[in-house]
Write a protein that binds this DNA or RNA. Structure first.
Length: 558
DNA sequence: GCAATAAGCGCG
DNA sequence: AAAGCGCGCTTATTGC
């Protein structure tokens, strides 16, 4: 279904603001094949339109994703008075599916919402411009950066899906065979799992036990006198009983088999590429989500199956201790930034005498970011607060705001969702005349829970913004490093040049021709530094990466 | 009989 | 007294 006017081409908008933007709408340009399109596109949904362009060999340089922008502006504190009050429109709905329905589908009743048409897109564009124009200038400038970064992320997400993660099914199969035994018939337990199940049954004297049934397992454990309230690994793994070792092993392997076993391989790697669907902005904080294949939870055990094509390499980069560095920038905490000068922020915390060991630095910092209040994490918090008062005060303030039911925002202005009805009701209950200690304690607990969320939101969300800026920089730099078209074949934008294939919060994987891999590594580092400057200006903050170059993801991470 | 929920665990 | 953030996915169980 190719709708005329469903895509808008903006001839110029990026630098000139709203005034003088010349807009014209075009059909999906199937006539444009095998070359880059330089203008900035504005369209309802990158995820709906871009895959088809990529399939035709067209790579888009820049875009504005109206639906993603709409959602950002809805929640952004800088614009929300105008936006939040507006009635829900077409841009509040879920994006239409990426795949085009067949042209001749006779009975395909399309449940997915249709993409907004030309008129709706033009209206939306104007409304968004107005909202930005009405925001205070500094906030508006940061928001514009965020909108551009989010949109660039959407382009990168579609490109990564298009390219796919190079996946060696034979290597994957070898891992499974090694750990589980030969591939069983569908519905059967692999040999190793059957063996472990038998061991658990005999150790618990429960011949009919189904190890996949939690109530079954719990009952059996209690029957032999183990004081457990759940079957979670951390609760059972230190118990002294012969059933525990095989049970823990069973759970571990059963998870691998169920989530990433042969069935996963058949479904998600049909042609040597794993192509997850990334959901840009799918997480409230601005992180990406994914759907299909569990792209963001690939178990470490299978990293060896991610293998570059012959003559190519994988360049894997991850940002070292991203969130503490981001917090240092957010809070303008010079001492924390100083600790981050170099590759090992936690090590520097030990070297400067803030804490006694690295593990403590890490758990303490995570506690500060998540709102931990127990154990060793809470114990070192006072030390951290003393050493890094600005940083700790920043997350504390975010937590207090959340506890009061206020919204908080990331550096670039992404707003946290306001508390829902249930939250408000619990607070109201505690204030009513009939309220007892029970209501008050419940309200306090709910309120603190929300405070932990807002505390983490500002850091996780700003880290996600750094990552978006990083991705945007990387895709730009990689594009200039190769050729577009393979002569004599269908146009394939990434066939001859290094390209992104995987993203995981603070980590990027580039598939690159071997000879270019070292340059790619340099560009990844340069892009990380550029992302830091984009967000934090000249505040002295470093964003060092661990970078590895290898044939497999596993080796490159090592 | 099918859909929603809970428990558990994978990732950062 | 209870108390760390954000996700997606699978199986078994519960609910309609």
């Amino acid at each position: 279904m190719r709708q005329a006017g469903a895509v808008l081409l903006l001839v110029s908008r990026a630098e000139d603001g709203a005034a003088g933007a010349r807009v014209r709408s075009v059909d999906l340009p199937h006539g444009i094949v095998g070359r880059e399109t330089a203008p900035r596109w504005a369209w309802s949904d990158t995820s709906a339109w871009y895959p088809r362009l990529l399939a035709d060999g067209v790579r888009v340089e820049r875009c504005l994703d109206l639906r993603l922008v709409h959602r950002l502006l809805r929640l952004a504190p800088a614009t929300s008075p105008r936006f939040a009050a507006a009635p829900a429109g077409p841009f509040d709905e879920a994006a239409p599916a990426a795949t085009a329905p067949a042209d001749d589908a006779l009975f395909s009743v399309d449940e997915a919402p249709a993409a907004p048409g030309e008129a709706a897109c033009l209206t939306e564009l104007a409304v968004q411009d107005d909202a930005l124009a009405a925001a205070p200038a500094p906030a508006a400038a940061r928001l514009r950066l965020l909108l551009a970064a989010e949109s660039a992320g959407a382009l990168a997400a579609a490109e990564m899906h298009h390219a796919g993660v190079p996946w060696d099914a034979a290597a994957h199969d070898a891992v499974l065979r090694e750990l589980l035994g030969p591939r069983p018939r569908a519905g059967q337990r692999p040999a190793r799992l059957a063996e472990l199940a038998g061991a658990v049954r005999s150790a618990l004297d429960a011949p009919a036990l189904n190890p996949d049934s939690l109530p079954d397992v719990l009952r059996a454990l209690r029957r032999v006198g183990l004081p457990v309230t759940s079957t979670r690994r951390w609760e059972i793994e230190h118990l002294d009983h012969p059933a525990i070792a095989p049970l823990v092993a069973y759970k571990k392997l059963s998870r691998l088999h169920a989530a990433n076993g042969w069935a996963w391989l058949d479904t998600w790697v049909p042609d040597g590429r794993f192509r997850p669907e990334y959901v840009v902005g799918g997480v409230v904080t601005g992180r990406w989500g994914s759907s299909g294949g569990g792209a963001l939870q690939l178990p470490r055990q299978l990293r060896g199956a991610v293998r570059a094509d012959p003559g190519w390499r994988l360049v894997v980069a991850d940002a070292a201790q991203l969130e503490p560095r981001v917090l240092a920038g957010l809070a303008r905490d010079a001492r924390l930034a100083e600790a981050g000068r170099g590759h090992d922020l936690y090590g520097a915390m030990v070297a400067t005498g803030v804490v006694t060991e690295r593990a403590l630095a890490k758990v303490g910092m995570l506690g500060a970011l998540y709102g931990g209040t127990t154990g060793p994490s809470a114990a070192v918090l006072p030390r951290l607060a003393q050493a890094y008062p600005e940083a700790l005060a920043y997350v504390e303030a975010a937590a207090r705001a959340g506890e009061r039911g206020e919204v908080v925002a990331t550096l670039l202005g992404r707003g946290s969702p306001p508390p829902d009805q249930a939250w408000l009701a619990s607070q109201a209950d505690a204030l009513s005349d009939a309220a007892g200690a029970r209501e008050e304690s419940r309200a306090r607990s709910v309120s603190r829970g929300w405070g932990r969320f807002t505390r983490n939101f500002v850091v996780q969300g700003t880290a996600a913004e750094w990552a978006l800026a990083w991705i945007a920089q990387v895709r730009q730099r990689l594009w200039s490093m190769g050729e577009s078209v393979v002569p004599g074949r269908a146009p394939e934008p990434f066939a001859r040049r290094p390209h992104l294939v995987y993203f995981l919060h603070d980590e990027l994987v580039v598939h690159a021709p071997a000879e270019l891999a070292p340059v790619v590594a340099d560009e990844l580092r340069g892009a990380a530094a550029a992302a830091g400057r984009l967000l934090f200006g000249d505040f002295p903050l470093e964003f060092p990466l661990s970078v590895g170059i290898a044939d497999s993801y596993q080796e490159a991470k090592a």
